[in-house]
């Protein structure tokens, strides 16, 4: 988590991602409605909400894979409909576990090298400079010694580190992480979040972290964004994690406070 001084500085910077009364969805289904949200350079933002609240839709919108039905979305001062490949390469993305076939026959280094492909463009082959960037990215996540190991032979936490390195190899301005700790044991969850926090600080990356796990991130983020189809609250964790606000999203009777921890009985939390 950045200091209050840093947070003020971040907020004063121009927004690099700006939702302006944006609606998203598919024919006949509205997944997100009337979202107004500005993300500033250097911020660490956590996006929380129950299952089906539109977290992944928000993620796809930031990636430029969804255009708003109504309203506007600007990414790097560019309307998302006009987003070009080189803009997309500036957002490093870690997908949810299970989306990617992690037994795909590639080595760790080959996986990380894929992070260079978007920035390279068509017809250009990766060269020594791309390899150097990929190896540096692996070093940042402390996985360089596994570079020639098959991706499928790694543990879940190590695979997450490799995918974070792949995102870093894009040399992104924004790191977008969709449920990065799902399926990991508790020590590994802390391990991955510590790494993300470290990268945010050392590389001054803007981080947008989508998660169901409020307690794991509340002390790490500058701002929380609470979603349930629409944006219910945004601000410092202490301002968002209030019983009256959470009740609106998770329902009455489902919130228990004990030593400042928030327990929410939804699908992810009941395990």
């Amino acid at each position: 988590m950045t200091s209050p001084q840093d947070s003020k500085e971040n907020a004063s910077r121009p927004a690099i991602i700006r939702f302006d009364h944006a609606w998203f969805g598919f024919p006949g289904v509205v997944a997100l409605e009337d979202i107004s949200l500005s993300i500033h350079a250097g911020e660490f933002i956590g996006v929380i909400g129950p299952n089906g609240s539109g977290k992944t839709t928000l993620c796809r919108a930031v990636l430029g894979l969804l255009s708003p039905l109504k309203g506007q979305l600007h990414i790097f001062d560019c309307a998302c409909e006009e987003l070009r490949c080189h803009h997309r390469a500036q957002i490093g993305y870690l997908p949810q576990k299970g989306v990617v076939d992690r037994d795909f026959p590639v080595t760790v280094l080959e996986t990380v090298m894929m992070g260079r492909y978007g920035a390279l463009g068509l017809f250009r082959r990766p060269g020594p400079e791309d390899r150097r960037i990929a190896l540096e990215s692996l070093a940042l996540v402390a996985m360089e010694r596994y570079r020639d190991v098959a991706l499928g032979s790694l543990s879940g936490g190590q695979q997450q580190r490799v995918f974070i390195a792949r995102a870093l190899a894009q040399q992104p301005k924004v790191l977008l992480l969709d449920e990065p700790t799902t399926g990991l044991d508790l020590p590994m969850q802390h391990n991955v979040l510590d790494l993300i926090q470290h990268l945010h600080k050392t590389l001054r990356l803007t981080v947008l972290l989508i998660t169901h796990d409020i307690n794991m991130i509340r002390s790490r983020v500058d701002r929380l964004v609470l979603l349930k189809t629409r944006l219910y609250a945004q601000g410092p964790p202490a301002d968002v994690l209030k019983p009256d606000i959470l009740e609106q999203v998770y329902g009455r009777g489902l919130i228990f406070s004990d030593r400042d921890l928030v327990f929410v009985e939804d699908y992810h939390h009941s395990h």
């Binding site: 997309r88 993305y93 894929m114 492909y117 978007g118 894009q170």
Partner: peptide, 11 residues
């Protein structure tokens, strides 16, 4: 490997 990740990465 993953089409959506490729698209999101600028491919």
């Amino acid at each position: 490997f993953d089409q959506e990740m490729a698209e999101a990465s600028g491919v």
